[in-house]
C-alpha cells in the first residue's frame, strides 16, 4: 500500500518517490513469479490482447502515418540542399525504426491502455472486487495483473512493427509529393541505409516499454486507495509514470546499444 504523503516537503516527496519505486520493483518481481507459477489464465490474456489492440489500432495508424509523412516533408529540403535526395527514404526509415515509432507508439499506448488499466483495476480495488475475487479462490495477481502485463509486453512490439509499416507508407506518400518514385526504388533506397542492428535493439526495447507500462499501470490501479477520487489519481499517475519510464528506458537502451555495438 502506498504510504501517505503527510506534507509537501521536498525530502518527504523524494523519500516517497524512492519508496514507491522500490515497491513497484517488488511488484514487478511478484508479477513475474505469478506468471510462471501454476496454470496461466490464457482466456483472460487473449481477451486483454484483443481489447488492447482494438483500443489503440486506430490512433496508432493515424499518428504513424502522419509522422512518416511529416518527417519526410520536413527533411527533404535539408537533404536537397546537400544534394543527397536519394538518402531521404533511408534516413527516414532509420529515424522511424530506431526511435520515432517505438517511442510514439509506446506513449500513445501508455496514454490509452495505461490509463485504462489504472482506472479499471483502481475501481475494482475501491469497490472490493479484487478482494472478492481473492476470497472466492481466484488469485487476482494472476488473473488480473499477470495477464495484463503479459498482454502489454507482447502487444507493444507488435504495434510498433505495425506502426513502422504505416509510417513507411506515410513516408512513401511524402516522397511522392516531391515527384513520383516507384515503390520498388523507394524500398531499395530505404533499405540501403538500414542494417539489422537498427532493428534488433529497437525491438528489444519495445518489450521493455510494454512491460513497464503494464507493471506501472497495474501497480497504480492495484494499490489504489481513497475511493472514487483515488481511481482518477491512479489512472492519471499510471500515464505520467509510464511515460517517464518510457523515456528512461529509451535513454538506457541508447547507452547500452552504444556499448555493445
Amino acid at each position: 500500500m502506498a504510504k501517505q504523503n503527510t506534507n509537501n516537503r521536498f525530502e518527504d516527496r523524494l523519500q516517497q518517490f524512492f519508496w514507491e519505486l522500490g515497491d513497484t520493483v517488488r511488484f514487478a518481481g511478484r508479477v513475474i513469479r505469478e506468471t510462471f507459477r501454476g496454470p496461466f489464465e490464457w482466456g483472460e490474456f487473449y481477451r486483454q490482447c484483443y481489447v488492447i489492440g482494438l483500443k489503440t489500432l486506430g490512433l496508432i495508424s493515424i499518428t504513424a502515418f502522419i509522422m512518416g509523412l511529416v518527417l519526410t516533408i520536413q527533411t527533404r529540403p535539408v537533404l536537397a540542399d546537400l544534394g543527397a535526395d536519394a538518402w531521404l527514404p533511408g534516413i527516414i526509415m532509420v529515424a522511424v525504426l530506431r526511435e520515432i515509432a517505438p517511442v510514439i507508439t509506446a506513449l500513445i499506448f501508455a496514454g490509452k491502455v495505461g490509463s485504462g488499466i489504472g482506472a479499471e483495476l483502481g475501481s475494482m480495488r475501491v469497490t472490493d472486487q479484487i478482494d472478492a475475487m481473492e476470497v472466492s479462490g481466484t488469485n487476482p495477481m494472476k488473473f488480473l495483473v499477470s495477464t495484463r502485463v503479459l498482454a502489454t509486453t507482447l502487444m507493444v512490439p507488435i504495434l510498433v512493427f505495425y506502426a513502422d509499416g504505416v509510417a513507411f507508407l506515410g513516408s512513401y506518400v511524402g516522397v511522392n509529393l516531391g515527384g513520383p518514385i516507384s515503390i520498388k526504388l523507394y524500398v531499395q533506397q530505404a533499405l540501403d541505409l538500414l542494417w539489422y542492428f537498427d532493428i534488433i535493439p529497437a525491438t528489444i526495447k519495445t518489450f521493455f516499454f510494454g512491460f513497464a507500462i503494464g507493471v506501472i499501470s497495474c501497480y497504480k490501479g492495484y494499490n489504489t486507495t481513497g475511493g472514487t477520487q483515488g481511481v482518477g489519481v491512479a489512472a492519471n499517475t499510471a500515464v505520467v509514470a509510464s511515460s517517464l519510464a518510457i523515456f528512461i528506458i529509451d535513454l538506457l537502451a541508447v547507452q547500452l546499444t552504444e556499448i555493445f555495438i
Partner: peptide, 19 residues
C-alpha cells in the same frame, strides 16, 4: 488457503459485484 476460501463465503458491504 484458496481451498479453504471456497468453503467460506464473504459478503462485502457494497456487494462487490464484478461490474
Amino acid at each position: 488457503l484458496n481451498q479453504i476460501r471456497t468453503r467460506v463465503g464473504y459478503l462485502f458491504q457494497e456487494g462487490a459485484l464484478y461490474d
